[in-house]
């Protein structure tokens, strides 16, 4: 069984082809870091997985279930939107800009989706939410509004919010890129903790050191395709492809 599988996925925005045929399979418990220059299609790939963007061509499987299949932008499956929604709740997502809900307190940010999407019991989910906030080190901030938190704290709340839906896979879209340097560590710490607990994770990141440390597999994307992949040692320390070498040279 694979958690996520992409088969020859293509995605175009108008005439601009951002993904040019991506094949990828991710196993349960695997931590995959995706690196590459901006515009290489890393974020778009994540966003296609949970249908924030719809693919133009190819197939997407989530836990071996077909979640999307398209050819020339034609929906071949006509999958029921409710089913898509259910499949997508298996995928938690953390955004670069946190995207916390500013009108809700920290605890309400964490509980709102389980309450209205999963019809969870309010008392029960609040207990779970408090545990999650404790895990990310923010239980004392539960009644604050997001605007009163630092970027790092906001991102940790965002992680707790995604976890509250009990996802099977966590996707991180450049989770530390909008943070002040001194706040990066706390967010990476939370993610490391999650990886150690066995969560399946797909992380788009520019933190090469972090990728080296936690990733089971590193994927280097360039110009809409997977250019090279392998263990962190292979890809980061001993890259074979010229493009990987020149990218790593630029950022290290």
């Amino acid at each position: 069984m694979s958690m996520v599988k992409l088969v020859n996925v293509r995605k175009s925005f108008g005439n601009l082809e951002v993904l040019k045929g991506v094949d990828l399979e991710i196993q349960p418990g695997e931590v995959v870091c995706i690196i590459g220059a901006s515009g290489s299609g890393k974020s778009t790939m994540l966003r296609c997985l949970n249908h924030l963007e719809r693919i133009t061509d190819g197939e997407i499987y989530i836990e071996d279930e077909l979640a999307d299949k398209r050819e020339n932008n034609k929906d071949l499956m006509k999958i029921d939107p409710v089913k898509v929604q259910t499949l997508c709740t298996d995928l938690g997502m953390v955004f670069q800009n946190f995207n916390l809900f500013p009108h809700l307190s920290v605890i309400d940010n964490v509980t709102i989706a389980p309450i209205i999407v999963k019809k969870a019991d309010k008392n029960e989910i609040e207990k779970i939410a408090l545990d999650l906030l404790k895990e990310v080190g923010l239980s004392d901030k539960k009644d604050e509004y997001p605007s009163r938190l630092s970027g790092g704290q906001q991102q940790r709340v965002a992680i707790a919010r995604a976890l509250a839906m009990d996802p099977k896979i966590m996707m991180f879209d450049e989770p530390t890129s909008a943070l002040d340097p001194e706040l990066v560590g706390e967010v990476l710490g939370t993610m490391r903790h999650l990886a150690e607990k066995g969560m399946t994770m797909i992380i788009v990141t520019h933190e090469i050191g972090f990728a080296r440390e936690v990733a089971d597999r590193v994927i280097f994307m360039d110009q809409g395709v997977i250019c090279e992949q392998g263990t962190p040692e292979d890809v980061i320390l001993n890259p074979k492809e010229e493009r990987t070498k020149s990218f790593l040279n630029k950022i290290l």
Partner: peptide, 14 residues
Amino acid sequence: DSGQMEAAKALGMS
């Protein structure tokens, strides 16, 4: 901000 709708959708909201 469109990120609000995206975050809501990513959490499974219609």
